[in-house]
Structures are given as structure tokens and as C-alpha cells.
Amino acid sequence: MAIVKKEIISKLQEQILNLQGFKRERNADAIDFGLGIISTAFPGNVFPLAALHEFLATNLEDAAASGGFISALLSALMKKGGLCLWISTQRKIFPASLITFGLSPERIIFIDLQSERDVLWASEEALKCESLAAVVTELDEISFAQSRRLQLVIEKSRVTAFVIRKNAEKLSSTLAASRWRISAMPSAAIDGLPGLGFARWHVELLKVKNGIPGNWMIEYASGAFRPVTQVPFDGLKIRRAV
């Protein structure tokens, strides 16, 4: 009886998602992002591809953490091949470090620009190219209208876009499918030995379309995410969800 009920509920959920205009990617299940518990926050328990994901980073340290997190996602996304564009002004990303997250740095083409306007133009052009695996954009600001332009292009080309917003103090609403904040957390010593442990992040999913926001503590160890707490993480004072 319980199984039948569950089936009915999941069917109904799918119907609701369809009514809300959410289309499931045909081969989205094929890619395992290794997000584990976090993926339960997404509609249909699948990380939405062909969508705009924004990451808030108020300072350099958060930008670094976001960069690392995105690289880990990219490495899963680009397993089958393809190239990725990283568009930014004043880039500080050190390509040689991205191999730590399983991402081959030679498959990233960096576009270093002078002005924000050029970054937006280049991102839009890049997102039109359906043979790219993903496009990462570092920006200070993105307005609602600008995000809509990117979203319209994405709907045609089905390329996944990641936007790092470096000036997250002034938050405007956007059309992004999800809004994240990744910040560093103190690591735990490995086997009680001195020195650094595995990189630990506080992952806040502040907004997600058709899903349930949440926040978790994860660790990146031996090429995979590992949840530190299985339940939504409450140990730290949670910043107000925006």
C-alpha cells in the first residue's frame, strides 16, 4: 500500500514540475556529480543542466572556494570531453591547481577581458555555442535583464552556465536556476595528525527553482565530495537566506 502511495506521489510531483515548466534533461541522469545528499534539493534529485547557476562570493576567499567547487562540478560535466570557457576580468585562478579537482586545465580556455560589458557579451556569445561543455563567468554584477538574456540563449543551446558574482553585497534577483554560497570551513585533522586536513566547505543552496534550499557541510577528499554531516547542517550560524 505504502509503495503505491509513494508511486502516486512521485508521479504527481513530476506532473507539478511539468506544469511549472521544468523540463528534465534527457541525459542528465548519465552524469554523476557525486553531490550525494545535496542533489536531493534539486527537482527530480538531478542537478539541473542547461541552466544558469550563480555563486555569491563577497571576498577573494569565497571566490576561491566557489572556483574549487565549480571545478569539481566541471570535471564531472566534462568527463565525456569538450571544452569549457572561463570568462573574467582580473583573473586570479591558477590553472595548474584545478587538476586537484579532477579537471584537466588544458581543456579550459580562459578569456581575460577588461570590462564587465565585454564579459557579458563574451558570455552570451559563448553560451550560443552548443559544443562547449560549460561556461564559467566571473562578474561583479548581473542584473535581472542580463540574466534573462543569458537564460534565453541557454534554452536554445543547452549549455550549462556558472556565474560567480563577486560583488554580492548588492543582490538583485536573477533568473538563475540556483543560487549558491560556498565558504571555507575549518578542516579536521586526519587521524589526529598535525597539519591541514581535507578542504571543507560550507555549501549553502540559497535558492533553487522547483527545489528545496538547504545547507550542508562537505569535504573534498580523494577526488569526491563527502558529506560531513548527513543532515542539513546547523552547527554554524546560518546566514539569512536571500
Binding site: 590553472p95 579550459i108 578569456i111 581575460d112 556569445e125 550560443k128
Partner: peptide, 19 residues
């Protein structure tokens, strides 16, 4: 795509790295 970017913004903006 890179041609278009280079055409508008200059070829020097495109970077790729090898070890």
C-alpha cells in the same frame, strides 16, 4: 566562436595553458 571573440576583443584575450 573564438574567432568571433578575437575579432571583437582582440586575439590576446584568449588564453590556454599547458604545464
Amino acid at each position: 566562436l573564438l574567432d568571433r571573440l578575437a575579432g571583437k576583443l582582440g586575439a590576446q584575450v584568449i588564453q590556454r595553458y599547458l604545464p
